[in-house]
Structures are given as structure tokens and as C-alpha cells.
Design a protein around this nucleic acid. Sequence first.
DNA 1: GTCTATAAGGTGATAGAC
DNA 2: GTCTATCACCTTATAGAC
Lengths: 203, 203
Amino acid sequence: MGEGQPDTRTRIQDAAAVLFRRNGYSGTGLKRIAAEADAPFGSIYHFFPGGKQQLTEETVRTAGTAYGRMVLELLDSLLDSLADDPVESVAKAFEAAADDLAATGYADACPIAAVAWEVASTNEALRVATADVFGEWVTAGEQWFARWVPDRDAARSLAHSLVMLLEGAFVLSRAARDREPLLLAGQSMATLLRTAIERTDRA
Amino acid sequence: MGEGQPDTRTRIQDAAAVLFRRNGYSGTGLKRIAAEADAPFGSIYHFFPGGKQQLTEETVRTAGTAYGRMVLELLDSLLDSLADDPVESVAKAFEAAADDLAATGYADACPIAAVAWEVASTNEALRVATADVFGEWVTAGEQWFARWVPDRDAARSLAHSLVMLLEGAFVLSRAARDREPLLLAGQSMATLLRTAIERTDRA
DNA sequence: GTCTATAAGGTGATAGAC
DNA sequence: GTCTATCACCTTATAGAC
């Protein structure tokens, strides 16, 4: 107990999260996961009897939920330091995402997108797992935007746009190894939010 | 010559395009490509001596360029039938994309996104190929938007947002097997374009 | 429970017959 | 130039020693 190395199961899942995020599902082998986790190969099947699919599903759900929570905490903390201006907070959040991506050599973007693209047509259990995570994100975003845009549909649309602009910007920024798409996405999201707030105030 | 079955090289590339789009790079085996193309395995290496990477690079560039051209033609034809209203045209284009995606059982979205996510950190030649295609799309979009938004940076930002919203909506719609994200993305894109045009008219 | 060895099949790639 | 057979390696998964 206490500090020290995390247990084997956790190390396996953490290594899997890193590799799935960077190389996708088919591009990541279980041997490689065991090696990066400093765990014997057999431990994967000991802790995840369902094999690669179970490991992937748990990793997608765990890492996906954690990422959503992290983004929300970032938004709240920016809001706190920016005089409760949600438009500025959203723009700064995209800048932070651009900084993080660049800092990892354009490797670590969305933790589940590569898997989501790959499995949607080929693995039903994993497709549902990615859809559930995206759904969580949209619901959380909807509640965040509802503070300034009480109309439910409008807030839900903003949340969708936030996730979609982020996902689209990630793939463009990662391919081009350039922060620009993420920064432009942040400005577009700011414009959408500003417009929705103006529409609310006018009503 | 004339009609009849396309030649072997074309059949291989067409089959590769379909499989890469649905299953990604690592998820697509050369054996499977040969089988779907009704071509002997050796023909792949006869026509693509650079192996899987060369086949993928040519497929990404060819299918990517064709897809960009198709979207632009759709936008122009919608413009024609909608009294030259670009805002309505953009919204309808996203609806058409939603229809197409649903019609293929949520299989055929962006022809290069799955590959782009997978290879960005692992294969430099393929990363550059996907970045080049995304760049083509942004440039073409910038020119299309310039008809109503002459400011170069504003038009370029709109083009980026179009591609990013489309990519993000594709991954969400495909995962959820639901047209809603694509429809919401179209409305957001319409809002962004309307705002940019208003800003232009005011200046 | 931890770890090794191996099975059974798929991978990209090549050599060479026809 | 079309096609087959095969190589060496890697994949997921399992059996069983310790």
C-alpha cells in the first residue's frame, strides 16, 4: 500500500491507454502492452480474461471518462481566473489543448478517437463503448453551457459542437503537426457560444 | 478497352480505399485487399512495389482528392438550387452527408480519417499524405467561402471549421449510429458562416 | 498468482514457376 | 505479367509449470 509502483493491473491499463491513443486498436499488440507495462504477457489474461476486447473496452471507458472530467475541470478553473467569461474560457481551453498536443510531439490527442474510427464498423461492443463516452462528454458539456444558455436544445448543440470541433481539430493538428487548427477551432467555438448567449439575452 | 471490368491496378486501389476507410490501416490486410479486388496477391506487389505503404499513400491521395472534389461539387450544385444562399447550402450539404452515412449502415464516412488518426505518430510518409489532403480541402474551402467573405483569414478559418466539424461529426455519428451529430454540425457551420457574412457586410 | 512456452493463424513480403 | 508457394515474423489466446 501507500506510494510505490501501481499494481500490475493498473500498469497494464495505463500502458494500453497510451498505446491505443497513439496507434489505435489494431495497431497496438498485447505483447507491446505487456512490455510497456513491465508485466508478464500472461498477466493480461489473468486480469482481463476477456482478452484484448475487454482490456480495450475498460481502457476506453476509464480513460474517456477521466479525459472528460479533466476538460471540465480545466474549463471551470479558466472560468474562475477569467472573471466568469465563458467565451474567453472556451477559447483558452482550446489553446491549452494545442499546447498539450504540441508538448507531446503531436502524439497525445483524444484518448479514444483512433479506436472509435477503427472499430465502429467491426466491433459492436467497442463501438458502443466509444459512443457511451462521447455521450457522457456531450451531456457534461450541455450542463456546463446551460449556465449561460438555458435553452436545452441550444446547450446540447453547443456541447456537440465543442466535442466535434475538438475532435476535428485534433486530427488536423496531429496530421499537420501544427497548433493552428486547434486555435481556429477555439475561435469558432467562442463565436458559436457568443452567438448563443446573445440569442438568449435577446429572448 | 471500353467498358467492362476496370483493370487490376484500379480494382486493387478501389478495394483498398473501401477497406482503409472502414477499418483503418493496421486493420486492413493485403490478403483481404487482394481478395476483395479479385486479384492475385502477387499483383499488389507488381503494381505497388513499395508494398503496403505505397498502396496506402496512393489510395489516401487519390481517394482524398476525389472526396474533396465531390464535396465542392455538391456545394456548388446546392448553391445553384437554393437561390445562391451559401448558408442554406452548407446546412444542406451536412444533411446530405448524414444521409449518405446512414445509407451505408454508418460505414462510409471520411475516406482518410481512420488512417490519419492511426499513422500520425508512426508513419511519417503517410502522416504527410493525410496532411496534404487535409490541406487541399482547406484551400478549396477557403476559395469557396471567399465569394462571400473576402477577408482571407476569415475565409480560411471558415474552411478549417467546415472540415473540422465534418470530421468530428463523422466520428460521433458513426459511433452512435445516429444522424444527429452531422445535422447539428451543419447548423453550427451555418451559424459560423452567417456570422462571418454579417461581419463582412458591416465592414 | 506469476510467469513461460507454445499453439494456431494471420501479417507483410519475396522467390520463382508458368 | 499472372499467379502460387513459401518465408520469417507477429498476432491473440491458452496450457501448464512453478
